[in-house]
Design a protein around this nucleic acid. Structure first.
Lengths: 118, 118
DNA sequence: GTCGTAGTTTGACATCTGTCGTAGTACGAG
DNA sequence: CTCGTACTACGACAGATGTCAAACTACGAC
């Protein structure tokens, strides 16, 4: 019975000014994490962890989502029993204009656009 | 006495089509390597390994230059006793339009532009 | 041939990373 | 309160990574 009524448990995120380019690049250099980010960008919505079907166990997923959050690429918020994941597009675009878009375009060129069906 | 008269020893490079986004991002996610690439881009010229003054030993430098070459970010050619390093700008721009520029701009924002003196 | 300069290779080492399995915590429904 | 769902935490482990030191190779100058 805390006062975290709206947010549930809180998760540590770097502030916009704390986001480091190297960490972002490192986060995005893993195929699993790049795929997560691509889906998030393609759907342009907050998704729960379980809406991604990654070929790894749940604990590994948790690990990857944490790396993305701690590097400042995604924002995670608890909503009930689910955990919503959203791309920090405003922060990334503000810090590194054009970077995210060319990154996503590069990934599309390399691996083909994401299936539209989701 | 080989027929490698013009090139000296040959070094393996990935062809343009073999360059993988993930490897490029991984290569650029190390501060030492990002600095190398930034200098190469700022000078817009081929530089020998020893023209960079990195705070690591020669063997570590060799390692970083190799990672950059094998990921397709730089091209290395022997010239006499020196080894010239050049950014593969054409290949990167062809594969991932805009990516290199936003990456370099992002690095400039984060760490300040490179000293013009070189 | 001898020397010096430039860069490589090898081996070692501590740390980091991606992965798993199992056990655990938090919340909503009943 | 009990149960199921969603995600976390911990411990383990193999493999990658960044670093160094020491010995080595390649080339140009003399």
């Amino acid at each position: 019975m805390t006062d975290t009524a709206t947010a549930g448990r809180a998760l540590p995120h770097p502030a916009r000014e704390q986001i480091r380019l190297e960490f972002v690049l490192h986060a995005l250099s893993d195929p699993m994490r790049l795929q997560i980010v691509r889906e998030l960008a393609a759907r342009d919505a907050e998704l729960t962890c379980s809406q991604f079907d990654l070929p790894v166990t749940k604990s590994t997923s948790t690990h990857h989502f944490r790396v993305l959050r701690e590097s400042g690429v995604i924002r995670q918020v608890y909503r009930g029993t689910a955990k919503m994941n959203g791309l920090r597009r405003d922060d990334l675009d503000g810090l590194f204009p054009g970077l995210l878009d060319s990154l996503l375009a590069a990934a599309d060129r390399q691996s083909g656009p994401l299936r539209p069906g989701g």
